[in-house]
Amino acid sequence: MSAEAAPRHVLVLGGTTEARRLAETLAGLPGLRLTTSLAGRVARPVLPPGEVRIGGFGGPEGLAAWLRQHRVAALVDATHPFAERISFNAAAAARAAGVPLLAVRRPSWQPHEGDDWHPVDSLEGAAALLADGRLGERVFLTTGRMGLAAFAGLDGPWFLVRSVDAPDGARPPRTEVLLDRGPFTLDGERALLRAHRIDVLVTKDSGGTATAPKLAAAREAGIPVVVVRRPPTPPGVPTAPDVPTAAAWVRDTTALS
C-alpha cells in the first residue's frame, strides 16, 4: 500500500470481549482505519481502542448505506452469540454493499462428566422446564436482563437475576437482582450458590471463559443446569473461533502486510 493510499476501513460490530481484543490487535496497524460499533445497551461499556460509534444503524438497509458511505473494506461481526438480529442484518447488509463479512463465534460450552444439563431452544423453553418446580425452586438466572419477560409468569420459583445493568420491564414476582460484570471466579461462584441456596441454574450457551466458572460450580454442587442453545449463524457467513484467526482474516482481506 502506497503512502498516498487511503487507509482500509474495517468495521467491527462489537460489545464482546472478542471484539475488544480484536480492536486491541488491529489498532495502530499502518494502513488500517478501525471503527467498533456498540449497540448502546450497556450504560458504561468498556471502550475499545480506535474509533467507536454507539447506537443502531436502522436495519440492514441502514447498515449497508453506512458501509458504502464510509467505504468499509471489511466487516467483522463480533457480537454476542445470541445477538441474532444484528448478525442477520450484518449478513444482508454485507451482501447488499459487496463487503466481505466474517463472524467471530467463540466455541460453545460442552458438558463434562457429572453435569446435569437440560438443553432448550429458547428462554420460553427454559421457563417451561422451571414451571413445575421439579428441577429446583431457587433459580440462578444468568441469561441477561433483556429476556426476563419469558419468566414473568412463574410465581412459584425464586429468582436471583445477575446482569450488568438493572433490568426493567416484566420480571418474575419473586426476584432479587445482582448487578455484576464478569469475568467471574470459581470460588466466587461457589460462594454465591451457597449464600443464595441455589438449586437450579439457567444460562445461555454463551461460550468463552468469562462466565464459565458457574458451570463448574454447579457441577460440583450437583445442581441441574438449563442451557439455552444458540441461534444459528446466518448461512454462508464464514466464522472464526478466536481473535488471532479473525485478525489474520482482516489482514488478508484488506491486503495488509
Rank of each mutant, 00 (worst) to 15 (best):
H118R: 13
V120C: 07
D121W: 00
E124Y: 00
E124W: 01
E124M: 03
A127R: 01
A127C: 06
L130H: 13
D132S: 01
G133L: 14
G136M: 13
G136Y: 06
R138Q: 15
R138M: 14
R138N: 14
R138Y: 02
F140W: 03
L141C: 12
T142M: 11
T142D: 09
T143V: 04
R145A: 05
M146A: 07
M146C: 09
G147N: 06
G147Q: 13
L148Y: 02
L148P: 02
A149S: 15
F151Q: 10
F151I: 10
A152W: 03
P157I: 02
F159K: 05
L160K: 00
V161E: 03
V161Q: 15
R162T: 07
S163P: 11
S163Q: 05
S163Y: 01
A166M: 07
D168A: 14
G169E: 13
A170K: 15
A170N: 10
R171M: 14
P172E: 08
P173R: 12
V177I: 07
L178Y: 10
R181L: 06
T185E: 10
T185I: 12
L186I: 12
E189G: 05
A191R: 06
A191D: 09
R194F: 14
R194M: 13
R194D: 05
A195D: 10
H196D: 13
D199T: 15
V200E: 07
V202S: 15
T203C: 07
T203K: 04
K204G: 09
D205S: 06
S206P: 08
G207A: 11
G207K: 03
G207C: 15
G207L: 06
G207Q: 09
G208L: 08
T209K: 12
T209Y: 14
A210Y: 01
T211M: 09
A212Q: 04
A212C: 09
P213V: 10
L215N: 07
L215Y: 08
A216T: 11
A218P: 12
A218C: 15
E220D: 12
E220S: 04
A221L: 08
A221C: 15
A221N: 02
A221F: 01
A221H: 02
P224L: 08
V225I: 10
V225S: 06
V226Q: 03
V227K: 05
V228T: 06
V228M: 14
R230P: 05
P231A: 05
P235W: 07
V237G: 14
